[in-house]
Nucleic acid binder design. Structure first.
Length: 197
DNA sequence: GTTTGGATTACT
DNA sequence: GTAATCCAAACA
């Protein structure tokens, strides 16, 4: 079952949590979403809408389920989904996938590497799924979309964590991970591989 | 007009 | 630990 736009007609935190375990399909590849983060238009200093007028313009111009793709650190495209609902608008950042179908295509786009590392980060998964800035403003939920989400009956075992890679509003528990999944970008804060003793 | 700081990744 | 490399905000 393809996910319809009403799935994204809610606040970004709910949508980010609900996307864990769902399938994303793009360019003849697919994967299960194992890591997301939420960014809210209101009360979130880490969101683009806090500093960028172009982001606020994007929110008013497009509807829920639209792709917000932007260039980060001058070199990597990061993929977000716009959410709009009564409790507030915002974005869900796709941070990691467990590759499923079309793995050979993902490896070609990513220039090789281990399957575990193909989509273990927002920049990597955008490349692996064949997406880039040209997809900015395209819909995930219209019938003619080049990419979409599907139900997968995999939506169990969700862990909550704080967002990573940001400075402002870094204490909000708005990062969601699939429990015990080896394909996430980094482990939950406090589960460091070399704990202090 | 110039400076600064990122929602990152790959390599040492 | 740090280089790579672009955009837009903030400052002058």
């Amino acid at each position: 079952m393809r996910i319809k736009s009403d799935f994204f007609q809610t606040d970004p935190v709910s949508a980010a949590r609900n996307l864990i375990g769902k399938r994303i399909v793009s360019q003849k590849s697919s994967g299960i979403i194992v890591e997301t983060e939420a960014y809210a238009v209101k009360g979130d200093e880490a969101a683009h809408t806090f500093t960028r007028s172009s982001a606020r313009e994007f929110v008013s111009k497009y509807s829920a389920g639209t792709a917000y793709v932007y260039l980060n650190y001058g070199m990597y495209w990061l993929t977000n989904v716009l959410t709009k609902g009564p409790k507030g608008n915002g974005f869900v950042l796709l941070r990691a996938l467990e590759p499923e179908n079309g793995i050979h295509l993902m490896r070609n786009r990513r220039n090789g590497g281990k399957i575990k590392d193909l989509c273990s980060g927002p920049g990597k998964l955008t490349i692996a799924m064949g997406m880039s800035g040209k997809d900015h403003g395209q819909s995930f939920t219209s019938p003619q979309s080049r990419f979409w989400f599907e139900e997968s009956h995999n939506e169990t075992g969700i862990v909550t964590d704080t967002r990573i890679g940001i400075t402002r509003s870094a204490n909000l528990p708005w990062r969601f991970l699939k429990k015990n999944n080896a394909f996430v970008s980094k482990k939950k804060a406090g589960e460091s591989s070399s704990p202090a003793s």
